[in-house]
Structures are given as C-alpha cells and as structure tokens.
Design a protein around this nucleic acid. Sequence first.
DNA 1: TTTATACTGGATGTCAATATCCAATTTCGG
DNA 2: CCGAAATTGGATATTGACATCCAGTATAAA
Lengths: 149, 149
Amino acid sequence: MISQTVEYALRAVTHLAQQSPHAQTTEEIAEVTRVPRAYLSKVLQALVRGGVVHSQRGIGGGMTLTKSPAEVTILEVVNAVDPIQRIRTCPLGLASHGIHLCPLHTRLDSAMALVEDAFRNSTLAEVLAEPSRSTPLCEFPTVPTKLAT
Amino acid sequence: MISQTVEYALRAVTHLAQQSPHAQTTEEIAEVTRVPRAYLSKVLQALVRGGVVHSQRGIGGGMTLTKSPAEVTILEVVNAVDPIQRIRTCPLGLASHGIHLCPLHTRLDSAMALVEDAFRNSTLAEVLAEPSRSTPLCEFPTVPTKLAT
DNA sequence: TTTATACTGGATGTCAATATCCAATTTCGG
DNA sequence: CCGAAATTGGATATTGACATCCAGTATAAA
C-alpha cells in the first residue's frame, strides 16, 4: 500500500527535520535511516525536484529542507516521490462513467482521499513533537528511563 | 496504492453480485469486467482460496459468491488477493520501537487503518444499491426492472 | 588553482507483480 | 462411457519497482 520509496523518503525528511537547519550528506542520512545509500540518492533527487529538499554540492554540502519542519506535510513528501493515485476517470474506460464514477470506484477513490487528507494534515514538526515512547529513527528514548536494555 | 489485482478482484465480485446467485464463467466475467482472461483466472483462484467465491467445474459451472452480496465486504475481497499491509513492527528493525511504533509509523499505520475501516464498512450490496448516475461495470444506466429470483 | 567533497545522471542488474499459455483434471449431459 | 465445458496448476514471458555502480559536475577550502 505504502511503497518502499515513500517509506524511505519519509525517513529521510524526518532526519532532515530532526537536524534542521543543518545540512546532512546522503551518506549520513543513509546510515541513520538504514536506507540503501545508492537508492537513497535517487529518492533524494526526487525530493529535490519536488521542491521539498534543497541540495548543496561540495565540502560542507548536503541536503536540507527548503522549509521549516512545521511547514512540510507528509503529503508533500509522498507526492514528490510516489503521488497518491486518485481515481478520476473510470478504470474500465466506460464513456458514460467518465466524470461521474460508479459507486464502486467512488468508494475506492474515497479511501484514497482519506489517506490524502490524513497525510495533508500531518507535518514533520508534529511527528517530531508528539510525545511517545519512541523517537523517530532513534533507537533509544530521548528521555532516559530507568529501564535497562 | 490500490493494486491492479485488487481492482480486478473487485470488478469480478461486483459482477458476481450483480448476477447472484447465477454462476458466471471466467470467460463471461472477463468480458464484462474487461480483465485479461488468463490473469482473471488467477485472481479468481485467490478469491476461491480466500473463501469469498465458490467454483464449480464442468458444463453449467462457473463462479458464484459463497455468501449473499450483503454479507461480502470490500475488505474481504481485498484481503483475499492483496491484504492491506498494516505496520505492526518498526520497519527499521529498531528493537525499542518493536511494539510501540514511533510517531511517524503510527501515522502511516493509522492511514492504513482508515482504508481498512472504509473497506470493512462497505458491502457489495451497498455498492450495487447506491443511487448513482452510473452502474458498476455497466456502460449504460440501468433501467429499473422487475427481478425474478 | 588545486583538491577533496558531495550531488547528478546514465547504465545496468534484480526481483516481485502482472500477464499469457497450455496440459491436466473435474463435471455435466447425452 | 464419451465428449464438451470449465476450472486448476505449472511453466513461462513482460513490466515496473527497487537497487547498485560509476563517471561527470559543482563547490568550498586550503
């Protein structure tokens, strides 16, 4: 349902948000997010083309978010690499269904709309701010507990 | 997002529901639903294994729903051919996230849950009964007729 | 200006989803 | 029983998603 590429992209921008506004190299991101380095570079390229991420070559360069984490939605990230496929015309090519989908495809598209809305209403800042027992990408709790590992 | 296989499966069971309880051959379903015949037979096999569809060989045989259209949910059909992938453990394999997903993956899984719920609360009978300008799988508006069962 | 660093783009490889084909099997009706 | 109808299962393409590799290019710093 959620492609591997989307999963990778979200991990990458989450790390960029955590380190914002400091640039991170592809290599650094790959290690923290456990994404294959070579493939990650392709995913990041898509994010750059999508305007979500800025890239800077050369020493001291790397990747940064183009906006603050509070302004980047999950949906923007998803759309940059693997857009949600909404059903806009009848998949069977039935002319009479062209604009007004039949009940079946209306339901399927509604489900896609639910996902789109959920992603639209979620920002990277919210993901990082949410109190939780675990921190995104991080093996250990940010707030130390007396629980031994 | 929604795989081609799921789309095909839903078209097939929709047609079976429309013709319920009369058996339909793979060939008949393929024509109406515009699904490649050979591939459709594989999809139907999955539906049979999933208990959604019953198959009968030989002359006069074909495919029928195992239950009435009112009892078959979209989710059952989806689960039979390409189950919704819920996120149950941390995709990064972080031990500390094992059971309690981080906020990022919690959000992604919630979106999948939304889809699952939408599909669970939709039956084939509802899809067929819903007033609409177009009828599932049918090119022309259905003319209200007296049905003999 | 030189050099190390880091992204970019193209070529290529791998694998699962999609799709096709056919022989084998079951079943009904004559 | 026999033959036609219909599904089943296995073998085999084809395609796109995922992944790797490397030469080329841009950039900061010395």
